[in-house]
């Protein structure tokens, strides 16, 4: 099976879906002539022309809203945010319009749109360009929120997101574009709302998404050397959330550590913890642990940036607390 990058996987997903459906188009800053700020849209302009690969001026609220309007009348826009940090100036279009129209119109209009782009902390770009915003969007009924961790997931989930009739917030890991994974040549789709066990284990459940899956896999390797087998559960989509998959794993291991790169206060991990205690309280042998970034805007200095974010050692320490080994 070919091994390709997360970036290529996303690119393939868009090419295949644009080939398949002439109503799919992509719009965003530098997606066309510049070939994408992160090169995810490489080659699309040459293949699909300016009609379907639309470079925009710097007007996130404007083009996010244009996407919503076009989707209401039947097109299937992919709106690329250069990074999700800039989605904040368009959040009204996502939350007040895209997420509401199906309900507000009594089911008469729906919004088949994908808002996609890099998200999560990057490297030394400072607080405004380095933040995890998934908890904001996961809060909103009417949206779906996807956070793939691997190239395989990225492709299968993006294809499904483009075909979905609802607004999908598709948050790619800004530091994952170069990561590689096996991706089949034949077409495949992955359902939204179905998680994946990235590593099996019997002693502790690690719940993580996007980049933190990789951190957890690294931690699991180290733990295995000490005889601790961690199961890594990747929900892949935060809304809808595959609660049964997480709960079943915790029932098996009796311990749960939730790892997210976002801030702790009102972060998505708190919702996961709530679901776990609600559905698996009697199976828990220890309090649920959370590992998050520190509750601060991202600092610039490299050492501080690392210190603020969850590292392999932080995950290991949390696992040991959950196993009463610390």
């Amino acid at each position: 099976m070919p091994v390709i990058s997360y970036r290529e996987a996303l690119n393939q997903a868009m090419v295949e879906e644009m080939d398949r459906d002439p109503d799919v188009f992509i719009m965003g800053e530098e997606v066309g002539h510049y070939q994408g700020a992160y090169k995810v849209t490489q080659g699309l302009l040459q293949r699909f022309s300016e009609r379907r690969v639309v470079d925009t001026p710097i007007a996130e609220m404007g083009f996010a809203g244009i996407g919503v309007g076009a989707a209401m009348v039947g097109l299937r826009p992919i709106i690329e945010f250069m990074t999700f940090n800039f989605s904040l100036v368009a959040i009204d279009q996502i939350v007040s319009n895209a997420a509401k129209i199906y309900q507000m119109s009594g089911g008469q209009f729906w919004v088949p749109i994908v808002f996609r782009g890099p998200s999560g902390p990057a490297v030394q770009v400072g607080s405004q360009h380095s933040q995890a915003l998934e908890s904001f969007y996961a809060h909103v009924p009417g949206l779906k929120v996807v956070m793939p961790s691997t190239a395989y997931d990225a492709k299968g989930l993006l294809k499904t997101a483009i075909r979905d009739d609802n607004p999908v917030v598709f948050m790619e890991g800004e530091t994952l574009y170069g990561t590689t994974w096996e991706v089949p040549e034949d077409e495949y789709l992955l359902p939204l709302g179905k998680g994946d066990i990235k590593r099996e284990g019997s002693h502790v459940t690690l719940v993580a998404w996007s980049k933190m899956v990789w951190t957890c896999l690294d931690a699991a390797k180290v733990l295995a050397e000490e005889g601790i087998e961690a199961e890594v559960v990747d929900p892949r989509t935060l809304r809808p959330l595959d609660t049964p998959l997480i709960v079943e794993s915790v029932k098996k291991t009796g311990r749960c550590v939730i790892v997210e790169v976002g801030w702790p206060h009102a972060g998505f991990g708190a919702e996961v913890a709530y679901q776990v205690q609600q559905h698996a309280l009697d199976f828990l042998d220890a309090p649920i642990e959370r590992v998050c970034s520190d509750d601060v805007p991202m600092p610039y200095a490299k050492n501080l940036e690392i210190e603020v974010q969850p590292q392999v050692e932080d995950v290991i320490a949390a696992v040991k607390r959950a196993l009463y080994l610390a």
Partner: peptide
């Protein structure tokens, strides 16, 4: 004002 881009979007689709 949030609906002005939506209108532009319907026109974009046309």
């Amino acid at each position: 004002g949030g609906h002005v881009p939506i209108a532009a979007g319907a026109a974009f689709a046309s």
